[in-house]
Design a protein around this nucleic acid. Structure first.
Lengths: 337, 337
DNA sequence: AGAGTCTACTGAACCGGGTAAGTTGCTGAG
DNA sequence: CTCAGCAACTTACCCGGTTCAGTAGACTCT
């Protein structure tokens, strides 16, 4: 089956290629009657503009890129990325932009992918996650002048727009809630310590626990995986004065922590209360269902795409703070026995 | 920063554009000395061929497409798709192909996406999942002559190559194992009944349970979500002669089933044994860890991509049966009390 | 020596859109 | 009547690769 081109439409409409292009793109230069005739023909023969030809002349690829820097076995179970992707899509598909994905193994590889995408003109912009201190990806993006939006932070990103949420406020709410229930020994199992949003959470956790006079409110660094989250939990629970509540930096570690508690014969929430960061179906799936810090990840992703498309169009929206996560109490939190 | 083109290389090397193209693509027509000089210059200035220009002349977009037909909230937690994607990537990135993703809401929408991708020449082929009986996507793919590989089945797909695994063998192994442990009342919570591989599993489950003389070995249809899986489990466990073992068609439903059992005060594996289909970190995350039917999903995906790239190159590999899943016993199965 | 062959290129067309510049034909003002 | 001005086009070139049809020069063969 041959793909229809604007030349086919032009022939059938008895006009030139240029007129067809003007008509289909809503540009002035054709009469309303001709435009409607051309649009009707395009509809009829099922015309879709060749994206390569368009990209070649218009310099717009109509696609954005996303790299996933996580080992394969974690990706599958991390609801976070898929939630983001769904959010991206909802915004992209309505403007008929594509999403190009690439799994990478390191930040260096990620940079290589950005360079290649840029050189190939494959994408118009990228969405960057996992912002770090002195992030080595930022100077590359600036040098390439590749439109980008960074999710995570806040941090120093030069003129690259960011999107972050008020993690400090959320964690403060969670700690206050646990204290109100009567907990005094609260611990936290953190995400990758190198990430800026993890650091922001750690600082906020320290501040609020100090302010409330909680002793031994430690953060155990971890890496978002179930294995590490479980190990960290075990280390916390074998202490003589073990915590009565643990806040986890993601849902996967929280579920792993729940399993460790059960394995050690502790009842949740009787002996241990659990709060997960980032609500996902996973939290409602287990027994007891987990109290979580909920935020709309898909909406978060959609927001990032809107910022990116604006940047691509040359309209800088600047950095934006999205709504903070809020506490969704479920069965995993209760007053300590 | 200006993107380097072959014209830049040609100027610096003192040859024509054509010679540069031959040199970089390993075509005959340039001397070895010239080729090395050109490659060195390309390296030095960081040249990447413009993918649009390439697609426009060579008719190869160097990208493959994947649609995800699941509601957003399920996608995040279904390790299956992300596992597949990781597998795709490992094979695609080594040949510097891209992966274009699109979330869709229905098969009709999925077909629209295929038509658009084809018209736009955005991709060279697609990977199709969730094969159904009399699948309406197949005639469209054939009409468009869009190279494709179908994951799932086996079923009638005309000349479109398929990739499937021996689900019948795997489920037979699981049932035999449970019977060997002493179980006589075994139930199954199935996936979406419309999918061909679900039907194959259902038939095989019926056959093996009949052959072993198990009465009341029912399959409760479900939809792969935790909610539905939990509901189906509850329905099974309130029966007077409730099953002592349940096989679930995916890991998410199995975890939900475990939670329901715990919520009803049943011990796993004491009162109820659980087997999950498709092993993922999720199965090892919960307590007790779930016995699962393990297969290498990433390898499965990589295999599909190899088939697809062969089809794109005009070399039909035909339909292939991948290795069957095998049983990984963990703490969720034991002899019934 | 002259014809034929081969290597190593060059030049130009081509892919399918976008768009600046040019060309009509018509209207209306002076 | 003439000419400016405008709408409604057409023409032609551009994007950056690939590829086919030459062609110059070296080399071989008789």
């Amino acid at each position: 089956m041959k793909r229809p081109t604007i030349a086919d439409i032009a022939r059938r409409a008895g006009v030139s290629k240029g007129a067809v292009s003007y008509a289909l793109n809503g540009q002035p230069g054709v009469s309303e009657a001709t435009r409607q005739r051309i649009v009707a023909i395009a509809q009829e023969i099922g015309f879709n503009p060749n994206s390569a030809a368009r990209a070649l002349s218009g310099a717009r690829a109509r696609a954005v890129g996303l790299t996933l820097n996580r080992p394969a076995r974690i990706l599958g179970i991390e609801p976070w990325f898929m939630g983001l992707i769904s959010g991206f899509e909802s915004e992209l598909s309505s403007r008929s932009y594509g999403l190009t994905l690439q799994v990478v193994g390191s930040e260096e590889q990620e940079i290589e992918v950005y360079r290649r995408w840029w050189g190939e003109r494959r994408i118009d912009g990228v969405i960057v996650t996992d912002l770090r201190e002195d992030d080595i990806r930022i100077p590359v993006l600036q040098q390439l002048q590749l439109p980008a939006v960074i999710i995570g932070g806040p941090g120093e990103t030069g003129d690259i727009p960011q999107l972050w949420s008020d993690d400090a406020g959320a964690i403060t709410e969670a700690v206050r809630y646990l204290v109100a229930l009567g907990h005094r020994r609260i611990a936290r199992v953190g995400g990758l310590p190198g990430l800026l949003h993890t650091q922001a959470r750690t600082r906020a956790f320290e501040q609020v626990t100090t302010a409330l006079g909680l002793v031994e409110a430690v953060t155990v660094p971890s890496d978002y995986t179930g294995e590490e989250g479980g190990r960290a939990t075990r280390r916390l629970l074998i202490e003589a004065d073990r915590p009565t509540a643990i806040i986890y930096d993601n849902d996967v570690m929280a579920v792993a922590g729940l399993a460790v508690a059960q394995e050690m014969g502790l009842s949740v929430p009787g002996d241990l209360s659990i709060v997960a960061w980032d609500d996902s179906p996973l939290c409602s799936l287990v027994h007891p269902p987990l109290t979580a810090l909920t935020r709309d990840i898909a909406e978060y992703g959609a927001h990032a795409v809107r910022q990116l498309l604006a940047a691509i169009d040359g309209k800088e929206l600047g950095s934006i703070e999205a709504g903070a996560a809020h506490l969704t109490p479920r069965g995993s939190t209760a007053p300590p026995r």
